[in-house]
Design a protein around this nucleic acid. Structure first.
Length: 259
DNA sequence: ATGGTCGATGGTCGA
């Protein structure tokens, strides 16, 4: 199975690029974050023309997550069991026997902000659901924008992140807790190098300066980890250019495993 | 190059 996750930063603004990318890469399953679409605005019919069934959990101008699948969608679930807010940040489906989540973890904003405590509560609720789903399914993948760089390898300069979110010990512990619950950071399993990022700020020429972070992850259960074949971050998709529509600030992460 | 993000939105916030 080829599975990808991509924070598109508005599906409406990105639809041409998403369609072209699906045509190029042909993932069996695509987890999308930040659709920024109301529930009734999602282009299910367009994706059907490309061979994909889809489910969407939208709330309008912010957030919004979706799963596209060429191999079926069963047992959809919206949100988290103990969701701290009700924002549209999690959606689940079974695709060809694989339990898939598309996740958009809260940003946190700053360590002093209430939104940071919300982020930590949200990650706790995700840990709880990850355990629940693991009891039901052997193959589980949690794909999404985690808004956490798991280690110092996952950003360009740790000194630029002193006192910032995305790297704080509590956020990293929350990711580590999911890993201790039996999940594996599938991209990191394949590559140990620094400098491999999935997000670059639009501002200050960050992409060209290689000032990025690896905050988009696919966490897989042991079964998926054992069956991994390859992984890649499609950083070409972060490029702009005069002949191309504007990019998202995130690049897609693609994994392939025997299934 | 005396500026330097983007998207939803319709003044300003969120990332």
């Amino acid at each position: 199975m080829r599975l990808a996750t991509w924070n598109v930063n508005s599906l409406k603004a990105r639809i041409d690029r998403v369609v072209a990318w699906l045509d190029d890469v042909s993932p069996d399953v695509l987890c999308i974050q930040e659709t920024k679409l109301a529930q009734d605005k999602f282009p299910h019919d367009l994706f059907v023309q490309l061979g994909y069934e889809s489910i969407h959990y939208g709330q309008g101008q912010w957030n919004g997550v979706a799963i596209l699948s060429k191999v079926g969608i069963e047992s959809p679930r919206y949100g988290l069991t103990n969701d701290p807010s009700g924002e549209a940040r999690a959606i689940w489906a079974t695709c060809q026997g694989v339990r898939v989540a598309s996740l958009y973890i809260p940003n946190g904003r700053s360590l002093e902000d209430d939104h940071y405590q919300y982020k930590l509560r949200w990650l706790e609720a995700l840990l709880s659901d990850s355990r629940l789903e693991s009891e039901q399914y052997e193959a589980v993948v949690l794909g999404g924008d985690f808004n956490v760089a798991p280690s110092d390898l996952d950003l360009w300069d740790i000194s630029a992140f002193d006192g910032m979110t995305h790297v704080s010990p509590l956020e990293r512990k929350a990711i580590e807790a999911i890993i201790e619950a039996g999940f594996v950071d599938l991209f990191r399993q394949m590559y140990k190098d620094s400098g491999l990022y999935s997000w670059w700020d639009y501002r200050n020429g960050a992409f060209h300066k290689k000032n990025g972070m690896r905050i988009d992850l696919v966490l897989g259960s042991q079964k998926v980890s054992r069956d991994m074949v390859w992984a890649l971050i499609d950083r070409n998709e972060r490029k702009g250019g005069q002949s191309q529509a504007r990019p998202s600030d995130h690049a897609p992460l693609v994994i392939e495993f025997d299934h």
